[in-house]
């Protein structure tokens, strides 16, 4: 009987904590949007964050998406040969997969692990060292000072990174298809033109921007809730990466579903 109560107590507390967490996150989203339109524009901080989020993430993203593109085109070829004994549609199919999924999602997950973790740790450290309280004492709204520049930079940065990642992915896919799979450049481009459209790139950019919206908000949310000590910062960082990754995957499904009505 006591065990039953303990389980009930645990479930009840978990539900209440989750509800409270979601409520606080929604409040942060609303406040951040409202603060985004309030002066002054923090251009210097936004540019600094853009450099951190986009420019400094570029090498690792390019490195990883190259391999992702190689795997995609090789696997596509292997499976098409296996199922329909013909891989002539591989360039177009792989390009579609890259534009619709790979470019945006792989980029966002990499940015989450690099930038999201960094933001959560930074904000968490600011919280436990009372820098956020100091900001408030000095008349600065923490959301305006901390969240808004990161949010703007992340939305712009992810949109740009997604475009670059897509282009690099396509280029690598082209190289693999020509060098390893024996497609000519003409065949590859014909495949691309037949399967993909400009709107696929637009949808990909929209996905990237939406993921860019989620990453700093989730990271700042966990940073603001950070408990004291190194353990608290570590926990906030871990939680922010896990939550951002899960939200990105769910959001990817939702956006893909919505975009399917426009394809």
């Amino acid at each position: 009987m006591i065990k039953g109560y303990a389980v009930l107590d645990f479930v009840g507390k978990s539900v209440m904590d989750s509800y409270q967490g979601v409520t606080q996150f929604i409040q942060l989203v609303v406040d951040s949007l409202a603060e985004g339109f309030r002066p002054p524009l923090r251009i210097r901080e936004t540019v600094q964050q853009l450099y951190f989020i986009a420019v400094q993430s570029l090498p690792i993203i390019l490195f990883c998406v190259c391999f992702a593109a190689m795997v995609t085109i090789l696997e596509s070829s292997f499976h098409m040969k296996l199922v329909i004994q013909n891989d002539s549609m591989v360039p177009g199919f792989a390009a579609m997969l890259i534009l619709r999924e790979l470019g945006a999602v792989v980029t966002a997950l990499l940015v989450t692990s690099r930038v999201g973790a960094g933001i959560a740790a930074e904000v968490g450290t600011m919280k436990i060292t009372e820098q956020i309280d100091a900001l408030r004492m000095l008349g600065i709204r923490p959301i305006h000072y901390i969240v808004v520049p990161r949010l703007i930079a992340s939305v712009i940065g992810l949109a740009i990174l997604t475009i670059i990642a897509n282009l690099v992915c396509l280029f690598v896919a082209f190289l693999v298809s020509e060098i390893y799979l024996g497609f000519t450049s003409g065949l590859f481009i014909t495949g691309l033109v037949r399967f993909i459209h400009f709107q696929d790139l637009v949808f990909s950019i929209i996905k990237g921007a939406c993921f860019g919206f989620v990453i700093p908000l989730v990271s700042c949310h966990f940073g603001f809730l950070c408990a004291s000590g190194a353990e608290g910062v570590g926990l906030a960082t871990t939680r922010s990466v896990v939550a951002s990754s899960v939200i990105i995957i769910i959001l990817d499904f939702v956006l893909s579903f919505v975009f399917s009505f426009f394809s």
Binding site: T129, E130, Q131, D133, A134, R136, M137, L138, G139, R141
Partner: peptide, 20 residues
């Protein structure tokens, strides 16, 4: 929070941590 700005102008606080 906005109304508190005036109060915080009057009150300076030195935190437990340097908070720089």
């Amino acid at each position: 929070e906005i109304e508190y700005l005036g109060i915080r102008k009057k009150c300076g606080m030195v935190f437990q941590q340097p908070a720089l």
